[in-house]
């Protein structure tokens, strides 16, 4: 699903965020990215989302070479990738429902289809009863679940999450991880960046350790 071929990324400032990274993530896999801040986790995800372009090397997503994707096609590519952020990036000028509906409206779904899918996604994260609320009135864990609902409402085959449990206590983190595991069980490829080592051990999934822009560990944590 995701393949990096000798990918390097150097920011204009001069520091190498990624240095000749090779990696391969199969369809339906669930992998974690870990490492200190500045190790290159976010850069790696941004390359997959086409928020950044690599300085050298090639990134493939679903066998598509992202280098060959013109910026005109980026929006259509992004509709097939769900993203969850640490700060959830919710819009506080509209209801939970409208936040989750955004990816569908953008993709041109009809109103009745939008309603059906948004409710299904909210139901999955157990927030159907709060669809009319403003996300600002929700707790941190609930906000993150709204963010997850928005990421999966379009039923993407690939889900990226950048520190999705960064601000949450262990119990809420476990809830969120359970959700991700459920999505993975139905075939969604999932990549989660996290520096919570305990959590990674508990999840018992493949972990990619990054340090200084290189992959220094690949496999289940001991």
């Amino acid at each position: 699903m995701i393949r990096f071929d000798a990918v390097s990324k150097r920011y204009p400032g001069g520091q190498d965020a990624l240095a000749r990274v090779d990696l391969d993530v199969a369809k339906g896999e669930m992998v974690f990215l870990t490492g200190h801040s500045g190790a290159g986790k976010s850069t790696l995800m941004k390359l997959i989302m086409l928020m950044e372009r690599p300085t050298a090397g090639q990134v493939f997503v679903d066998n598509r070479n992202l280098n060959r994707l013109s910026s005109r096609h980026i929006p259509f590519f992004r509709r097939n990738v769900g993203v969850v952020f640490q700060n959830h990036q919710l819009l506080f000028d509209r209801s939970v429902f409208d936040n989750v509906a955004l990816p569908l409206q953008v993709a041109g779904y009809q109103a009745n289809e939008v309603g059906r899918r948004v409710r299904a996604a909210l139901d999955k994260v157990s927030l159907l009863h709060k669809e009319r609320h403003n996300p600002i009135t929700l707790s941190g864990g609930e906000q993150q679940r709204v963010g997850i609902a928005r990421a999966v409402v379009n039923k993407p085959a690939l889900l990226l999450a950048d520190e999705p449990t960064g601000n949450l206590d262990p119990e809420l983190s476990a809830d969120i991880m359970r959700l991700f595991r459920q999505f993975n069980e139905v075939g969604v490829t999932i990549m989660i960046a996290s520096h919570d080592i305990d959590l990674l051990r508990r999840m018992n999934k493949r972990v990619l350790g990054l340090d200084g822009g290189r992959i220094v560990h690949d496999g289940v944590l001991p």
């Binding site: 999955k124 039923k155 999505f183 139905v186 075939g187 969604v188």
Partner: peptide, 26 residues
């Protein structure tokens, strides 16, 4: 409430887009 079975997932993504007529209406 239950996620769909994994089998259906491998379908091409051309399908993840709404149909053209619907898109025009939308």
């Amino acid at each position: 409430t239950k996620p769909a079975p994994a089998k259906t997932r491998s379908q091409g993504a051309s399908q993840s887009r709404a149909r053209l007529g619907d898109k025009l209406d939308a």
